[in-house]
Measured scan of single mutants.
Amino acid sequence: DELEKRVKKIARKLNLSLDQVEEWLKRNNNDELVEAVKRLKKK
């Protein structure tokens, strides 16, 4: 979905793993995208 695409884009842009992106999003209080990261990690 759109949020998952955004997460992947962030990960690529910042050259981070999904775990690192998740931490980064949590620090930025971006719950919506944190949920998207969790969905991606399950895939």
Rank of each mutant, 00 (worst) to 15 (best):
Q20T: 04
L18F: 07
L33G: 02
K13P: 00
N15K: 10
V34I: 11
E2P: 10
S17I: 08
K8G: 09
N15M: 08
L3S: 07
D31I: 15
K5P: 01
K8I: 15
K26M: 09
N29G: 15
N28W: 14
K26D: 05
K13N: 13
R12A: 13
L18P: 04
A11Q: 14
V37D: 02
K5G: 07
N30C: 15
Q20K: 05
L16M: 15
N30K: 14
R6A: 14
E35I: 05
R39F: 01
E23H: 04
L18I: 07
L3T: 05
A36T: 05
D19E: 09
D31L: 15
K8F: 05
L18Y: 10
N29S: 10
K26Y: 06
S17F: 08
K41Y: 04
S17L: 10
L33T: 01
L3Q: 12
E4H: 03
L14Q: 04
K41D: 02
L40W: 06
L33F: 06
W24T: 01
D1H: 11
L14D: 01
N15D: 08
E23T: 04
K9W: 08
K9P: 00
E32V: 10
K43C: 10
V21C: 06
A36R: 02
E23P: 00
S17C: 13
R39G: 05
E2I: 12
E2G: 08
D19P: 03
V7W: 04
K38Q: 10
E32P: 06
W24K: 01
L14F: 12
V7G: 01
K41L: 12
R12K: 14
L3K: 05
E4D: 04
L25F: 14
A11V: 07
V37W: 02
D31E: 12
N29L: 10
K38I: 10
N28V: 11
V37C: 15
R27A: 15
R6N: 06
K9D: 15
R6S: 08
L25C: 12
I10V: 03
R39S: 07
K8H: 11
K5Y: 08
W24C: 15
E4S: 06
I10W: 02
R12T: 08
E35L: 07
R6V: 14
K13E: 15
K9V: 13
V37E: 02
L3D: 11
S17N: 11
K42A: 13
Q20S: 04
D31F: 14
D1P: 07
S17Y: 08
R39P: 00
L40F: 02
E4V: 08
E32W: 11
D19F: 04
E23Q: 08
K42E: 14
K13I: 15
K9G: 09
W24H: 06
R27N: 14
R27G: 13
A36N: 02
V21G: 00
D31T: 14
S17K: 04
K13L: 14
R12Y: 06
E23M: 05
D19L: 07
V21D: 00
E32L: 11
V34H: 05
V21Q: 00
E23L: 03
E4F: 04
E35W: 01
I10D: 00
K43Y: 09
L25D: 00
N29E: 09
K8S: 09
E4K: 05
E32N: 07
E2A: 12
E35N: 07
L33Q: 01
R39L: 03
W24G: 01
L3G: 07
E4W: 05
K42D: 12
L14V: 03
A11W: 05
N15T: 03
K41T: 05
I10L: 11
I10F: 01
L33Y: 04
L18T: 02
D19Y: 05
K9A: 15
E22T: 04
K5I: 14
N15S: 07
K38P: 01
D1S: 10
D31C: 15
W24I: 11
I10A: 03
L25A: 14
L25Q: 00
E22F: 09
V21H: 00
S17R: 03
E32R: 09
N28E: 11
N15R: 09
E35G: 04
E35K: 08
W24F: 13
Q20F: 05
V37P: 00
E4Y: 05
E4C: 12
K41F: 07
K26P: 00
L3N: 09
E23A: 07
K42I: 08
E35P: 02
I10R: 01
N30P: 04
R12Q: 12
L16H: 03
K5F: 09
L3F: 12
K5D: 14
E4T: 06
K43L: 11
V7R: 02
L25T: 00
K5E: 15
V21S: 00
N15G: 15
R6Y: 12
K41R: 12
R6M: 15
D1M: 11
E23K: 06
E2S: 09
L3A: 13
L3V: 05
N28D: 07
V37R: 01
L14T: 03
R12H: 12
N15Y: 04
K26H: 08
N30R: 13
Q20A: 09
V7I: 12
K41V: 07
W24L: 13
V37F: 00
E35H: 04
E22Y: 10
R39N: 10
E2N: 08
L40P: 01
V37M: 03
E35Q: 08
N15V: 02
V7M: 06
Q20W: 06
E32G: 06
E23W: 05
L33S: 01
E22G: 04
R39H: 04
V37L: 08
E4N: 03
E32D: 11
K38H: 04
K42M: 07
L40R: 03
N28R: 11
N15H: 13
V34A: 12
I10C: 14
V7H: 02
D31A: 13
N30M: 15
K38V: 07
E22V: 07
D31K: 12
R39A: 08
L25N: 00
K43T: 06
A11F: 03
E2T: 09
K42P: 04
D1I: 12
R6L: 15
V7N: 01
E23R: 06
L14P: 00
L18E: 03
N28L: 14
K9M: 13
